[in-house]
Design a protein around this nucleic acid. Sequence first.
DNA 1: CAGACTTTGAGAACACGTGCACAAGCTCGG
DNA 2: CCGAGCTTGTGCACGTGTTCTCAAAGTCTG
Lengths: 236, 236
Amino acid sequence: MGIGSGRPGPGSRSDTISEARRIPEATVARLPLYYRALLETVEEQVSTVSSERLAQLAGVNAAKVRKDLSYLGSYGTRGVGYDVEFLLHQISRELGLTHEWPVAIVGVGNLGHALANYRGFGARGFKIAALVDADAAKVGQRVDGLTIEALADLPALVAARNIAIGIIATPAPEAQKVADQMVAAGVTSILNFAPAVVNVPNGVSLRKVDLAIELQILSFYQERKEPGPDAGAAAG
Amino acid sequence: MGIGSGRPGPGSRSDTISEARRIPEATVARLPLYYRALLETVEEQVSTVSSERLAQLAGVNAAKVRKDLSYLGSYGTRGVGYDVEFLLHQISRELGLTHEWPVAIVGVGNLGHALANYRGFGARGFKIAALVDADAAKVGQRVDGLTIEALADLPALVAARNIAIGIIATPAPEAQKVADQMVAAGVTSILNFAPAVVNVPNGVSLRKVDLAIELQILSFYQERKEPGPDAGAAAG
DNA sequence: CAGACTTTGAGAACACGTGCACAAGCTCGG
DNA sequence: CCGAGCTTGTGCACGTGTTCTCAAAGTCTG
């Protein structure tokens, strides 16, 4: 993502792309932006929205919006735009947000704490279903209404609470071990916040967020600005 | 960022790309990975490293490593590999990590707190130089050795402490306003954690990290796995 | 010193993503 | 019912990124 991301495995050519039409990865990464933009639009009591307006709200250009949405189907009406409620529903369905996803957070340090308290998840279809830490001293503590549980209990928790998505918020050295344990426990999607490369078997999705890397990318362009205020990564 | 990200402005064709060779954005985003991998290599007392090994440590493939590094210059030796110390220095220089970057964090809620306490920044050339919040009740509180200061003082802080990079860790509705104030204060690189689209003028770099979006992308692929365990975003 | 071996650097083909431009299709007013 | 005006959906061209491949250039062994 962003910066770094999961990428389709090296599947054989003309796979049995079973059910649905294939949606490009870049488009998938933008669907949440449209989703958010549509939520804002709903609150404005507007029933219909143009690709132009949607583009503005999502911070992309209109052509991209139209192409992206066309991968989902022909959900717009020419001369009119897109029905807000309908499109919202379609994108929700596509993103799997029609039901709630129980999520497990492993590593309750600074970041784990912040994530546990973050209100944004609940509002977007995710629910912290388990807080796990390897440190016995932390087990039993309560954070935001949840009790921290032992890492050893992860398999039981994942099974009992039907958890498919895991978040790694441990220090770097623990990351790979935790990922392995998650996979063994049955987690099939992982979001890694630890500044370390993590490998997962085929069939498991992995995305990463690295704060230091983001800053270093900014620093690259910043450094090039200092001498002569010239090229750089300017977002319009 | 990976996920959305800064993007070179629409400069005229055959710009005076002043000083240096142009380095592709995708390559820039990977340099920090190589940087981290090289730091690990240094600790192993290894003096030379092959593209194959670097690729392994960075989680990419060897061809990509070689092409990426070739944009920086011909720093390798055929038949041998890359000199670890030398390459580390070159990448540091390119990323602007030869000096420390003072960073301002605006918004000291859950996330701001976590970022302020995050040890990873210091280790990578960044230093929290200011913690700022709009809430008068928070001003004066101490967090990790720093005193929270008033948002109104941002311009003075940025000037006095030579801050070029700002981090937005406020709730979504505040994000644009804060970004504007940062830009007005002289910040030219912004990392936005708020789940909102932020616009900045030309010449200012912007990157965003959105936790909910990352989860929604995972959820997209996860949803498609549930019926038939098939395609997905699997990282090797 | 020659030949085997290793590894880089880059050319070229391919895959993917973006954005223009415009026909197709819809609404609305008269 | 017709024509003016909008807005979608998509073909196409272009630019960016990835990967394969292999000659070039070095080391090492005998």
